[in-house]
Design a protein around this nucleic acid. Structure first.
Length: 883
RNA sequence: GCCGGGGUGGCGGAAUCGGUAGACGCAGCGGAUUCAAAAUCCGCCGCCGAAAGGCGCGAGGGUUCGAGUCCCUCUCCCGGCACCA
């Protein structure tokens, strides 16, 4: 046993522990069929430059689970990689004239060092970066498989076009309708692009949500809403409307979708979107309509505006035929009809749809009641909540359908329409196919070659990967690949003639849709994944931000199903359990001035003003002592100057303190409010842990017993209750770890130390009890603060074999023998009000407990001489006397 | 508007099956130590009340011996979706 230094030196402690883990390859994961496996994964970071607090929180949660399961005997893998393609690298290139590749690799190097300084149990031998050809080769390979299966296909897409830079802009590069660099008004352009038919999997993606019972309910709901399944009838209004060349527009059919086919006899108009072909046609000789259509197209898409937007429309003067009644129905253009949903047209039933009702009232259209609801009176004056009451409605004024209920009417009407060849029942999805083409340089090249004779030709497998040149420096105008003949020029794989490579790259969501599978099969350069993938996958625990609740997780689920259908993997869902961690917030301080606008202050530039009760009543700037506005808590951001740098935190307090604070301050799913005083408190706790270990090691000098004698030893009151308390806290901590509620695990550790510090240390048996209890504390604490516990564990002489440390020690379990007690204290209630407590022997039956309770002083006082009518005994908890 | 989640001290947050509300920490107050301060240690710390006691988990009602927890009504906050036909 070496003697511990008195003072807790976090820097030295952490360096030593990290060197040990590095030397012993402590985190290397090897497939082992004899052990249960546990694949713990945190969402990999974008290498933006340096870690932020959100990363620290995310990866600490993952690390706690990783270490906990390792000690529980699982074969654990925790890998890490880099989501390395993306726009910020191109922006940095424009600003600094550095190739995105260099910028990215430099950032990876730096951030990797930061992750190591936090002591995460990561198997770095599995590291990957999505910008490396050995990784993105398989993006390309799977894309080609999707092309073969018809899952990937080509169609035109609308993009933002900067006319000055002659380049396509991403949505986030368009600010108020203008290009971010040039300020030029952005145009919409139609260009060809590749799509992935995620809609082919819509049904399975929706249904399998039910199997994800370890995902947060809200994430499953968000995905279900996003997929947006609705059942209804799609049918057509026939018409004779022809364009100037004499051809029927849309083959003479105006298609609409409805979930309320039972109201079809109440149709008094149709409404189409501004982009609909009938609208375009009608606008040709109608300047007023053309202007209205223009207004709709350029209208605000802000959510708040949409919600309050007035329903507006104009008649087209065109008429279509009602498929069942043969009546002529006028077509309107409505600003509330979306071209992107269904067929961009709706039937108008003012009597039974709230929007149609408002529209009809505004323009004086006919309102024809076709559904009657018992107990409700129809009115053409005010909306009567008919729409929501469809289950109780019955058809009226509907000819042969009169008297039919909601579902019977839909069945009858759908089959009549089908017989006419004008439509059928149909599932409608909100989900749309995934456009993956990006007109950007820093991404995975789409493996297509354009030949004048053969058209778009897929790159043959043996020519993969299509390698992206890493030395381009984008300048903001166009894709730099266009200036690279060495990349651009190639031979057509079909005919051999000179051809051009596709310069579009893939959406970076492609890269992140399967990286978790590649971690299982590092180094394989002949296959995307191999049989090892079915050992490690699915991921047992995935941890990341709620902002990825929809797109990333949905795309990954889709990608998994495609890989499954190709026989590459044998699972259908990639992530068994999901934890979405909350954001990290900090105080916001600002001052508004007429000259400079809003000026933000960093928290360290501020003095808080408090009243005598410690309440914050205001804030002043240290600089001038004048007041600033306190804006509560907000997400940490550079522009608001309220970020906390992980490096500074680690330097000042150490990785263990940082990790402990993150775990202790808030439960993992909730937002975490930063507090300088809070991190001080965490540091104080670890200093006490260190000091206790020091005192324990140098003063008590326990003779670690070869065989434990405690189980049979008769302990005195103080030692017995200390031991019981520690084992109870351990039981609680184990329960909380199962719930993934780490804040209370941390607080259990604090309670253990509080109890240990008060314990008597005056006997050999005391030393033994303390040794057992402190050993429990160290192990429970170790997943959260691995460095300090590693050192104390070793210095107290627990390590028996070279290369072992606390991580290879077994997780402690509470001993029943330590929990029993001779006498238990029950809460005493009279008439449901707590009036004190009563001590009873551990084995006492209810009768004896009742008698003891009634006889107690406190009960006698509050019973006021009245007899007990009823006594309720909750074993081990309380006794309640009713008088 | 719809769908989720939530409202507990000055603050972050505990409370497992309906059973002592406020664990643990922060801030605050008092004390010890110190020439002094920092650090450290000890004590107090929901509200009203001198005390006995009463009141307290967004508001109101209900079920129960007993409700932060279950049921109903309302309210506010957060997140998601949204003229979805």
């Amino acid at each position: 046993m070496s003697s511990l230094p008195e003072k807790y030196d976090h820097t030295a402690t952490e360096k030593t522990a990290q060197a040990f883990w590095e030397r012993s390859a402590a985190f290397k994961a090897v497939e082992d069929a004899t052990k249960p496996k546990y694949y713990c994964l945190s969402m990999f970071p974008y290498p933006s430059g340096k870690l932020h607090m959100g990363h620290v929180r995310n990866y600490t949660i993952g690390d706690v689970l990783t270490r906990f399961h390792k000690m529980r005997g699982y074969n654990v893998m925790q890998p890490m990689g880099w989501d390395a393609f993306g726009l910020p690298a191109e922006n940095a290139a424009i600003a600094n004239k550095v190739p995105p590749a260099k910028w990215t690799y430099d950032n990876i190097e730096y951030m990797k060092g930061q992750l190591k300084s936090l002591g995460f149990a990561i198997d770095w031998s599995r590291e990957l970066a999505t910008c490396k050809p050995e990784y993105y080769k398989w993006n390309q390979w799977l894309f080609l498989r999707m092309l073969e299966k018809g899952i990937a296909y080509k169609k035109t897409q609308v993009v933002n076009w900067d006319p000055v830079d002659q380049t396509v802009l991403a949505n986030e590069q368009v600010i108020d309708g203008r290009g971010w660099r040039t300020g030029a008004v952005v145009e919409k352009r139609e260009i060809p692009g590749y799509y992935l038919a995620i809609t082919q999997y819509a049904d399975e993606l929706l249904n399998d949500l039910d199997t994800l019972d370890q995902w947060p309910e809200r994430v499953r709901l968000m995905q279900a809403n996003w997929i947006g399944k609705s059942t209804g009838v799609r049918f057509a209004f026939p018409h004779e409307i022809k364009d100037e060349t004499g051809t029927l527009i849309n083959d003479g059919k105006l298609w609409v979708f409805t979930t309320r086919a039972d109201t079809i006899m109440g149709v008094t108009f149709c409404a189409v979107a501004a982009e609909h072909p009938l609208a375009t046609h009608a606008a040709k000789n109608n300047p007023e309509l053309a202007a209205f259509i223009q207004k709709c197209k350029s209208g605000s898409v802000m959510e708040a505006d949409m919600a309050t937007m007035e329903k507006e429309g104009l008649p087209t003067g065109l008429f279509v035929t009602h498929p069942l009644t043969g009546e002529q129905v006028e077509v309107w253009v409505g600003n509330y009809v979306l071209m992107s949903y269904g067929d961009g047209a709706v039937m108008g039933v003012p009597s039974h749809d709230e929007r149609d009702f408002a529209f009809a009232k505004k323009y004086g259209l006919t309102i024809k009641q076709v559904i009657a609801v018992a107990g409700k009176e129809f009115s053409t004056e005010a909306w009567q909540e008919w729409y929501g009451d469809k289950e109780n409605g019955v058809c009226i004024n509907s000819g042969k359908y009169d008297g039919l209920s909601y579902s019977a009417a839909i069945d009858a009407i759908a089959s009549d329409i089908k017989a006419l060849g004008l439509g059928d029942k149909k599932l409608q999805w909100r989900l749309r196919d995934w456009g993956v083409s990006r007109q950007r340089y820093w991404g995975c090249p789409i493996p297509i070659i354009h030949c004048d004779d053969c058209g778009s030709v897929p790159v043959p497998d043996d020519q993969l990967p299509v390698v992206l040149p890493e030395d381009c420096v984008p300048d903001g105008s166009g894709n730099p690949l266009h200036k690279r003949p060495d990349f651009l020029n190639c031979a057509c794989p079909k005919c051999g003639k000179p051809a051009r490579r596709e310069t579009d790259t893939m959406d970076t969501f492609v890269d992140s849709s399967w990286y978790y599978a590649r971690f299982a099969t590092p180094g394989n350069d002949t296959a995307m994944v191999d049989e090892r993938v079915n050992y490690w996958l699915p991921v047992d625990q995935y941890i990341g931000g709620i902002e990825h609740a929809i797109l990333h997780l949905l795309y990954s689920r889709f990608w998994t199903k495609v890989m499954g259908d190709l026989g590459l993997v044998n699972y259908r869902e990639p992530f068994k359990r999901l934890l979405t961690q909350g954001m990290v917030l900090n105080h916001l301080f600002s001052r508004r001035s007429d000259k400079t606008g809003i000026e933000w202050f960093a928290p360290e530039e501020i003095d808080l003003v408090k009243d005598e009760a410690g309440r914050v009543t205001g804030a002043t700037a240290k600089r001038d002592g004048n007041p600033v506005d306190y804006g509560g808590y907000g997400t940490m951001s550079k522009s608001k100057r309220n970020g906390v740098d992980p490096n500074a935190m680690i330097e000042q307090y150490g990785a263990d303190t940082s990790r402990f604070f993150m775990m202790f301050t808030a439960p993992p799913e909730q937002t975490l409010e930063w507090s300088d005083a809070g991190i001080e408190g965490s540091y104080r706790f670890l200093k006490r842990v260190w000091a206790f270990g020091h005192v324990f090691a140098s003063q008590i000098k326990p003779q670690l017993p070869a065989s434990r004698t405690l189980a049979s030893a008769k302990l005195n009151d103080k030692l017995g209750s200390l031991r019981r308390e520690i084992h109870l806290l351990l039981k609680q901590a184990n329960y909380d770890l199962g719930k993934q509620q780490f804040n209370t695990v941390a607080s259990s550790c604090m309670k253990m130390l509080n109890a240990l510090e008060k314990a008597p240390r005056d006997s050999g048996i005391a030393a033994e009890v303390i040794e057992e209890c402190f050993g429990i504390l160290l192990r429970v604490l170790s997943p959260i603060t691995p460095h300090i516990t590693h050192t104390l564990w070793a210095d107290l002489g627990y390590v028996k074999n070279e290369g072992d440390d606390i991580l290879s020690a077994p997780w402690p379990e509470p001993l029943e023998a330590a929990l029993v007690q001779d006498e238990i204290e029950l809460v005493l209630q009279v008439l449901g009000k707590t009036r004190g407590s009563v001590k009873v022997p551990a084995g006492a039956d209810n009768k004896a407990i009742e008698a003891l309770a009634i006889a107690s002083e406190a009960a006698q006082k509050f019973m006021e001489g009245k007899p007990a009518k009823k006594v309720i005994v909750v074993p081990g908890r309380l006794v309640n006397i009713v008088v």
